[in-house]
Amino acid sequence: MDLDAFYASCEILRNPELKDKAVIIGADPKGGKGRGVVSTCSYAARKFGVKSGMPISRAYKLCPNGIYLRPDIKYYKGISDQIMEILRSYADKFEQWGIDEAFLDVTESISNKINPTELAQKIKNEIFEKIGLTCSIGIGPNKQVAKIASDFQKPDGLTYVSPEQVRSFLDPLPVEKIIGIGPKTKKILNKKLNIETIADLANYPPEKLNKIFGKMGIDLSNVARGIDNSPVQEDYKRKSLGTEVTFDEDIEDFEIIYKTLELLVNKLHKSLIKGRYLYQVVVIKIRFEGFSTYTRQQKLKTPTNDKKVALQIGKKLLKEFESNPKKVRLLGFRLVDLSESKHVQKTLLN
């Protein structure tokens, strides 16, 4: 289940006068000179070419008369919580996937002779009647197929892919429809391996994919052939904490970058302690003017919640970029491979 243009739809729900208008949620465009990106936008805004993740300045050029709103996460989460409760009531097993998506395992319900499309329509109807929002549902024999199907007829879509239809459904689709294939992987598949469609990926030798991508290559090959054995997990375990900042003006002084890193580390460390988490991987992300973006990471031998270690590694990872002549546009910091613990463990750098 995927809620349609969720943030924008929530704003339209709050203010019906926004219906059918180009609503864009994200940073302040500042008349086309704003920093930051588009979080999401209404379908009316998408007709102008506006997309999630697009620089807000670019969105403003495409749609200067759009209605630009800052995200109200607390409000969106309240609506999300209500919808997730509805979904849980239908699921044999349930897995929330972010604020606006979820997987439902309804195998037992379907085995009791309930038509899967009728069940999906019943869920859609209840969400619309009780909350006032539309969603798109994909039905399939596994999570990957269901997720791809949910995107197939947006908005307000319902797509059922039976086990017998999986290959004919997947084969003609572009390879980036598979969860986990981002811009970098897509570029390798398209340019180096001449893999454009899911059928191309399914027919490519798995052992060669393994050499290029490691275990991920085997997983991609399996998904392309309709194989995905990942279970619907009822208990959500957070895997990472992250935050980032887009500067109002590009920064040349690296001392400001290091001071900003310290602020980001302090912010994340509070969340880390509050959630009783340990981290094992430190990741930094840096974006320069011109949008060239780099990430670096370092893994610890054992998990820890030590703030000083996180800051030390963050500075070390940033150091290689000091000599870059370009100004810095964005800085991000993330703690990954989280685990729960009631005590602090000693730290060993790997």
Rank of each mutant, 00 (worst) to 15 (best):
residue 4 D to K: 06
residue 5 A to V: 05
residue 5 A to K: 01
residue 17 E to R: 12
residue 18 L to T: 06
residue 18 L to Y: 15
residue 20 D to V: 06
residue 21 K to H: 14
residue 26 G to F: 07
residue 28 D to R: 03
residue 29 P to K: 06
residue 30 K to L: 04
residue 32 G to V: 07
residue 35 R to Q: 12
residue 36 G to P: 00
residue 40 T to E: 05
residue 40 T to Q: 09
residue 42 S to Y: 07
residue 44 A to P: 12
residue 45 A to I: 02
residue 47 K to D: 07
residue 51 K to D: 01
residue 60 Y to K: 07
residue 60 Y to A: 05
residue 61 K to F: 05
residue 62 L to P: 00
residue 64 P to V: 05
residue 66 G to A: 04
residue 69 L to M: 13
residue 71 P to S: 12
residue 72 D to E: 13
residue 73 I to C: 10
residue 74 K to R: 11
residue 79 I to C: 08
residue 79 I to W: 04
residue 81 D to L: 11
residue 81 D to F: 12
residue 86 I to T: 09
residue 86 I to M: 06
residue 90 Y to N: 05
residue 93 K to Q: 15
residue 95 E to L: 07
residue 96 Q to D: 08
residue 97 W to G: 04
residue 98 G to S: 09
residue 100 D to Q: 03
residue 102 A to Q: 01
residue 114 I to G: 08
residue 115 N to L: 15
residue 115 N to F: 14
residue 116 P to G: 10
residue 117 T to I: 14
residue 119 L to D: 13
residue 124 K to G: 04
residue 126 E to D: 06
residue 132 G to C: 10
residue 132 G to V: 08
residue 134 T to L: 06
residue 135 C to A: 10
residue 142 N to R: 13
residue 143 K to N: 07
residue 145 V to N: 00
residue 146 A to D: 07
residue 148 I to P: 00
residue 148 I to M: 10
residue 154 K to M: 06
residue 154 K to S: 05
residue 155 P to M: 09
residue 156 D to V: 04
residue 158 L to S: 06
residue 165 Q to P: 02
residue 167 R to M: 02
residue 168 S to I: 01
residue 169 F to K: 01
residue 176 E to N: 09
residue 177 K to M: 05
residue 177 K to H: 08
residue 178 I to Y: 01
residue 178 I to W: 01
residue 179 I to R: 05
residue 183 P to Y: 10
residue 184 K to F: 01
residue 184 K to Q: 02
residue 186 K to T: 03
residue 188 I to Y: 07
residue 190 N to Y: 15
residue 191 K to G: 06
residue 191 K to P: 07
residue 193 L to Y: 15
residue 193 L to C: 15
residue 195 I to V: 15
residue 197 T to H: 11
residue 200 D to C: 14
residue 200 D to Y: 15
residue 201 L to N: 00
residue 206 P to F: 08
residue 208 K to T: 15
residue 220 L to P: 01
residue 229 N to D: 12
residue 231 P to R: 08
residue 237 K to H: 13
residue 238 R to T: 11
residue 240 S to V: 05
residue 243 T to I: 14
residue 244 E to G: 14
residue 244 E to V: 15
residue 245 V to K: 15
residue 247 F to N: 14
residue 255 E to K: 13
residue 268 L to G: 00
residue 278 L to Q: 11
residue 279 Y to Q: 03
residue 284 I to S: 04
residue 291 F to R: 09
residue 293 T to E: 08
residue 294 Y to P: 03
residue 294 Y to N: 05
residue 295 T to L: 00
residue 297 Q to F: 03
residue 300 L to W: 05
residue 305 N to Q: 13
residue 310 A to L: 10
residue 313 I to W: 02
residue 314 G to H: 00
residue 317 L to D: 01
residue 320 E to I: 10
residue 322 E to Y: 08
residue 323 S to M: 08
residue 324 N to V: 11
residue 326 K to C: 02
residue 332 G to Q: 12
residue 339 S to M: 08
residue 341 S to Y: 10
residue 343 H to T: 14
residue 343 H to G: 12
residue 345 Q to V: 04
residue 349 L to V: 07
residue 349 L to S: 05
residue 350 N to R: 06
